[in-house]
Design a protein around this nucleic acid. Structure first.
Lengths: 219, 219
DNA sequence: ATTATTTTTTAGGTTTGTCTAAATTTTAAT
DNA sequence: ATTAAAATTTAGACAAACCTAAAAAATAAT
């Protein structure tokens, strides 16, 4: 199936919103896309005809399985281009979004395959968001404090929710940043603290509070 | 001034056609763009309002100075992307046109500036066509046989008009290909033959016929 | 349980870029 | 110099993607 730039933007925004709310509303999508609710309704009908949307009038909507697949391929393109812009062209990570937003609509699968090769199959973009693979599989992001982050398996830091100077100082001290690889070596259930090993450094212990603020994923 | 994708495609095609004919006709442009003459006329009016076109009804049209500048910036983007696709992503040179056609419309000047840096300021795309510089200056392409290709100045092979096996064999023998740098050392007016020096090889003499088929440019 | 408010949809209109068919102008042919 | 042919433009329509204003449905408030 083939999608226009406009359709792709709607798909991407619906995907983004339904990460948090499952069922998306017309107003929230209009707000996200800086457009009018009536325009959203128009597009919803089109996407429903194209069979990528579950939609019940007045109730809300969500992407179905094939819609999600389309969304993930757009997200993949966006994040690969962001990675390219930062690591190859030397852009600052906070300046690439708008340009990637344009590049993501260039629709050659061969281009994306070769770009991915060229970049050495990055797993996360410069903001720490995971890049879906060719088949639409995307890493799940979890708080480091959550018990089901497996022990002794390498995970990658995706984001840090608390950006206070104290937190940043602590992270710097432990050599933790976005993209840092680490593994959980032990969990102490007494106080929720976690022993981690950051690349080649000696293991260290971080409090539950810190672990709650660190988001990681594994492949 | 800001141009839509469609406008940019018209501008690029007009520029291309007026390289050969100076005054462009409605039919030829319709043919070039695979569209209808009536659609062309519609767009011509728009481009005239935007003051980038000299246009007299029923007579023909051409880009004015600012129109040419716009065209050259599009050509620049196109050819930089083609160069990128071949040299960085490993595409074959004959497979990149369609993709570059999409990428060229991504309109961030900062992106193009940084891409140009990243690629080390290439002067020609993989087909041998010169890349206009940041200010819209583009190398002029001439037959190597023409007297005003200066002597003892480095020029670059842009294209070869005769692709016969015999010609290709000869070119291979003299180590001449698209992108090859060479200089004219002597011209023999008796038969129009030209002595050239290809990079580090010994000087050699090519006939006027061969020289007529080799197109070069210098910066 | 009505009424009021908010949300969503419908109805109808606009712009961009395209089209076909008809009219006009230019060019070519007798 | 007319007439025939070709090129070009105009007129009117259409699809995509948006809009405003009004109607309909769902939600909240009394």
């Amino acid at each position: 199936m083939n999608f226009s730039v406009s359709e792709e933007n709607y798909i991407k925004s619906i995907y983004h919103l339904q990460q948090q709310t499952d069922l998306v509303t017309t107003n929230s999508l209009a707000n996200e896309l800086q457009t009018r609710p009536a325009s959203v309704t128009d597009m919803l009908k089109k996407l429903q005809v194209k069979k990528i949307l579950e939609y019940e009038k007045y109730k809300g909507f969500r992407l179905n399985a094939s819609g999600k697949k389309v969304a993930l391929s757009i997200v993949r393109r966006h994040r690969l281009w962001e990675y390219f812009l930062v690591t190859k062209l030397g852009f600052e990570w906070d300046k690439v979004h708008a340009i990637a937003e344009e590049l993501e609509h260039v629709s050659s699968p061969e281009l994306i395959r070769k770009l991915d090769d060229f970049l050495n199959h990055p797993t996360a973009d410069p903001h720490g968001d995971p890049i879906p693979d060719m088949h639409g599989k995307i890493a799940v992001i979890k708080q480091l404090s959550i018990a089901d982050v497996p022990e002794n398996k390498n995970v990658v830091v995706s984001s840090v929710s608390n950006q206070s100077p104290d937190m940043l100082e602590l992270l710097k001290h432990y050599h933790i940043g976005i993209g840092t690889g680490l593994k959980v070596t032990t969990r102490f259930s007494f106080d929720g603290s976690v022993e981690i090993k950051v690349s080649k450094y000696a293991p260290c212990i971080i409090s539950e509070l810190v672990a709650k603020n660190i988001f990681v994923y594994h492949d």
